[in-house]
Design a protein around this nucleic acid. Structure first.
Length: 594
RNA sequence: GCCGGCGUAGCUCAAUGGUAGAGCAACCGCCUUGUAAGUGGUAGGUUAUGGGUUCGAUUCCCAUCGUCGGCUCCA
């Protein structure tokens, strides 16, 4: 991954994108001579440039700028590099406050153009192309004729804080992209279109899976019967697997007294994300943003022996967190959600086996839902932290050794751990190659201290257990959103809310259809009979749009033979088969989770 | 929270400073059908909410709520 990023930075595509950003800035400056410009790097799928402009941009502006860019590209501008001193640079950019700030930073080895800290003063360079000169380290193309004017596209306008700091001015950011060929651009735009078709918010409506509602409140999800059926199936599988793997289930309340959250430290460090307290009988109660303190109290409810460990307490715990109004996004970022949470308590000598177990278990769980490509991220000890250093190192070693042993591809984020412990996050890749973080496995050196957790060791003395938080699916809401997009709404048979749609051709076939439906239901299949007076074609279209995996057409032939004619949602039609044969086929595919 | 856009029937969308229209869906019929939309009719809206400007606001202005694209945040 790291190598890939470096390779991209060295590539011609990167130079094309970065240079296209400059061309864009040139055309924006032509249109708004007083524009102040900030930074304009190439990014993963394109580029952007931030401007401080006298008025808000409109989509029409974008079209106009894009058109002008093509003209500039075709005028074959050369990109010329020049090294200069900070003093010269300040003179060149005397009317550009953002550039002056960058120069200051570079001069003193503060931050570079990407906002990364640099230790030493960086040599300054200018790149000039056409009428535009920018403070820029490059690299660029030599001439704009290397840019294909048919392979550029401006995508959208958005607000962005100067240097990502919400206390600084809000600038206007134009996102765009560029490719080497028109075909590559078209592929990319196709992928964006495809992603729109799979958008879980759109599919959630079309397939009647879930909704949110003004009156209920933002970020609070209503699961409709279809979505709730899928959730039920996910939960049922999750329950079975947990029970088979040494977990104990617990149920805990949704609110707890303020003293609980003081002990846990959440009131001191997490209150910004917590809902306001509920006062009753002179006590303040808080809605839980996390399940941990409750699980810890289950642990603490009795004296624990080293023989009792490991203890694995699991709960699909619903939590509420205040999220700022602008950050909610469908099911992926909400205010009320259910974590598939568990806390492991173990001895030091069990830690390695426990980490092995939980990583293996996570991977199997994710794979069961069709996510085959999984990438791990290991985050280690940060500067600001609690807990003894040797415990940190022991935990990090256990995590990393497990990743190696299980040959899971991983990246290390040095110093990226939470203040309370190191962690592994797992990201899955979906059908379009997008990454989504689902699982997290985190050590905690904070709460066991705060709640004074202990177990009695072989030596008769109390010892502090190691504690691990983990969520495998993350939250059921987020997981559902990712699942919808991964399958594009065409859920595998075992998860499809409706597995079979029976399609009688004429009214006289309805009775037989109902008989078949009864048989299928008995066999555990989820079935609907479409006995409306619609034409068969319309019924097929409807079932197809609802992405029902099996459509069973029933006409005179089928009634006579006691058979059904299977059409799959792939469009494949099979010759008529007996009802038992269909049940066997469906049950096999359900068992295989196809 | 911030910048910008948007909010009209269940859904997808149209229209206008003089109290709104289509397609699909729904409902009632007719048709009885062989692998992606048969057909006629009926009903459905305080144009998100609250305030303001105006003789008159759904349209213009303000606020609130929701939502979209980003930023920021993501213990």
């Amino acid at each position: 991954m790291m190598e890939e990023k470096q390779a991209y930075k060295d590539s011609q595509l990167y130079r094309i994108r970065h240079s296209t950003a400059h061309i864009m800035a040139e055309s924006v400056l032509e249109k708004f001579p007083d524009a102040k410009f900030a930074i304009g790097p190439a990014i993963e799928d394109g580029f952007y440039y931030d401007f401080d402009l006298p008025r808000a941009l409109t989509p029409d502006d974008l079209a106009e700028i894009e058109k002008r860019m093509r003209g500039l590209i075709q005028s074959h501008e050369t990109f010329e590099r020049k090294e200069i001193s900070p003093e010269e640079a300040k003179e060149v950019f005397k009317d550009q406050p953002y550039k002056l700030e960058l120069i200051e930073g570079l001069e003193h080895g503060g931050l570079d153009e990407d906002g990364n800290p640099t230790d030493e003063p960086v040599p300054l360079s200018l790149y000039s192309s056409g009428a535009f000169t920018d403070l820029c380290a490059g690299p660029h193309v030599e001439n704009s004729k290397e840019i294909n004017p048919q392979a550029i596209k401006l995508l959208n306008i958005a607000g962005a804080y100067w240097r990502g700091d919400e206390k600084r001015p809000m600038l206007q950011r134009i996102y765009g992209t560029a490719f080497e060929s028109k075909a590559d651009l078209d592929d990319y735009l196709w992928k964006i279109e495809e992603a729109k078709k799979r958008d879980h918010r759109k599919l959630g409506k079309e397939l009647d899976l879930f909704s949110t509602n003004d009156e209920v409140g933002a970020g609070l999800v209503l699961w409709h019967p279809n979505g709730a059926m899928i959730r039920h199936l996910v939960e049922r599988y999750w329950d079975d697997e947990h029970l088979a793997n040494g977990y104990d289930f617990v149920y805990t309340p949704h609110i707890g007294k303020s003293s609980l959250w003081e002990t846990s430290g959440h009131l001191q460090t997490y209150s910004e994300n917590m809902y306001a307290p509920i006062e009753i009988e002179g006590q303040a109660y808080y809605i839980k943003p996390m399940n941990c303190p409750f699980h810890i109290h289950v642990y603490k409810s009795g004296l624990r022996s080293y023989r009792d460990l490991p203890i694995r307490l699991a709960e699909k715990g619903t939590v509420y967190r205040y999220e700022r109004s602008g950050v909610m996004h469908g099911l992926l970022r909400v205010r009320g959600f259910t974590q598939d949470d568990a806390h492991h308590f173990c001895r030091e000598d069990q830690m390695s086996a426990e980490v092995d177990f939980v990583l293996d278990f996570s991977m199997k769980m994710l794979q069961a839902f069709g996510f085959k490509k999984i990438q791990a991220y290991l985050s280690t000890m940060p500067e600001k932290r609690v807990g003894e250093e040797d415990r940190w190192h022991a935990a990090e070693a256990a995590l990393e050794e497990t990743l190696k042993r299980m040959q899971v591809p991983y990246e290390v984020d040095q110093g990226g751990g939470a203040f309370y412990g190191p962690k592994i996050d797992l990201k899955v890749q979906d059908a379009l190659g997008r990454e989504w973080q689902l699982s997290t496995i985190q050590f905690d050196f904070n709460l066991p201290e705060r709640f004074d957790l202990s177990y009695i060791g072989e030596d008769g003395q109390p010892h502090r257990p190691y504690m691990v938080h983990r969520a495998l699916l993350g939250s059921l809401e987020r997981f559902f959103g990712v699942l919808i997009e991964h399958y594009g709404g065409a859920f595998p048979v075992w998860l499809a809310p409706r597995q079979v749609e029976l399609i009688p051709i004429a009214e006289r076939h309805n009775d037989f259809a109902w008989q078949v439906a009864a048989q299928l239901k008995k066999a555990g299949l989820r079935v609907k009979v479409n006995d409306s007076s619609d034409r068969m074609n319309a019924k097929i279209r409807d079932a197809q749009n609802q992405k029902v995996p099996y459509m069973l057409v029933i006409g005179d032939r089928e009634v006579e033979e006691g058979a059904v004619a299977l059409r799959r949602r792939s469009g494949e039609s099979l010759p008529a088969m007996g009802v038992d044969a269909f049940i066997a086929l469906a049950q096999k595919e359900v068992a295989e989770r196809l």
